[in-house]
Amino acid sequence: MRASGTFSVKSFVPTELVPAPAIGTNLPVGVATLEKSFEGEVVGRSATLFTAAFDQETGVGTYVAMESFEGSLNGREGAFNFAHSATTSGSDRTAEFFTIVPASGTGELAGIRGGGGLAVDADGTHRMWFDYELDAGPGASS
């Protein structure tokens, strides 16, 4: 199954967390927490732990994110975790990774597994989709 939607970042809060030991590289490593809001076939919110080595001036870098989502996919309600990462040279996305964390689903999303993706339109609209399956069982079917 596929569920698609758009999202907006409701908050982006950098933290003071610094990897130890501190190692100097050409790109600084930062950590932040985010809250996102989703609309479309994906409705709900997520809490995100976000880590990146990124140059704000050139837009070059790589991020890794772990999200906890609460809401619905195609009308099925529950919560689950997913992880994603990508690299950018400032104008593209490469080395993309996106996976739903096995055994993390609750409610009607219990048993969820699969992947998905993320894209940013030229106008800045952020899109996310989940390609998923649900285990057969109480409250879940594929």
Rank of each mutant, 00 (worst) to 15 (best):
R2Q: 13
A3S: 14
S4W: 09
F7C: 06
S8Y: 00
S8T: 14
K10C: 12
K10V: 15
K10N: 15
S11Y: 11
S11E: 11
P14C: 02
P14T: 05
T15Y: 04
T15F: 06
E16D: 12
E16S: 13
L17S: 15
L17G: 06
V18N: 06
P19A: 15
P19K: 05
A20N: 08
A20V: 13
P21D: 09
P21Q: 03
A22E: 12
T25F: 10
T25G: 06
L27N: 01
P28T: 08
P28Y: 03
P28M: 08
P28W: 03
V29G: 09
G30V: 08
V31D: 11
A32I: 05
E35Q: 15
E39I: 07
E39N: 11
E39Q: 11
E39M: 08
G44N: 04
R45V: 09
R45E: 15
S46H: 01
L49T: 10
F50E: 14
F50M: 06
F50W: 14
T51M: 15
A52I: 01
A53N: 00
F54K: 10
F54V: 12
F54L: 11
D55I: 02
Q56G: 01
Q56I: 05
E57A: 15
T58E: 04
G59T: 13
G59M: 03
V60I: 14
V60S: 03
T62E: 07
V64F: 09
V64I: 08
M66Q: 15
M66K: 13
M66R: 12
E67N: 09
F69Q: 05
E70G: 11
E70S: 14
E70M: 07
S72D: 02
S72K: 02
N74Q: 09
N74F: 01
N74G: 08
G75W: 03
G75N: 04
R76S: 02
A79P: 09
A79D: 07
A79G: 15
N81D: 09
F82G: 07
H84I: 01
H84N: 11
H84C: 05
A86V: 07
T87W: 00
S89L: 10
S91A: 10
S91N: 13
D92P: 13
D92G: 12
D92I: 09
D92F: 09
R93V: 12
T94Q: 08
T94R: 05
T94F: 05
A95V: 04
E96Y: 13
F97W: 02
F98M: 04
S104T: 13
S104V: 09
G105F: 06
T106D: 01
G107D: 08
G107M: 02
E108C: 00
E108I: 06
A110D: 15
A110Y: 09
G111S: 13
I112F: 07
R113G: 11
G115S: 02
G116E: 01
A119R: 13
V120P: 12
A122T: 10
D123L: 03
T125Y: 00
T125C: 04
H126V: 10
W129P: 01
F130K: 01
F130L: 05
D131C: 00
Y132D: 02
Y132F: 12
Y132W: 00
E133C: 06
D135Q: 08
D135H: 05
G137S: 03
G137H: 02
P138S: 01
G139D: 01
A140Q: 14
A140G: 14
S141D: 13
S142H: 11
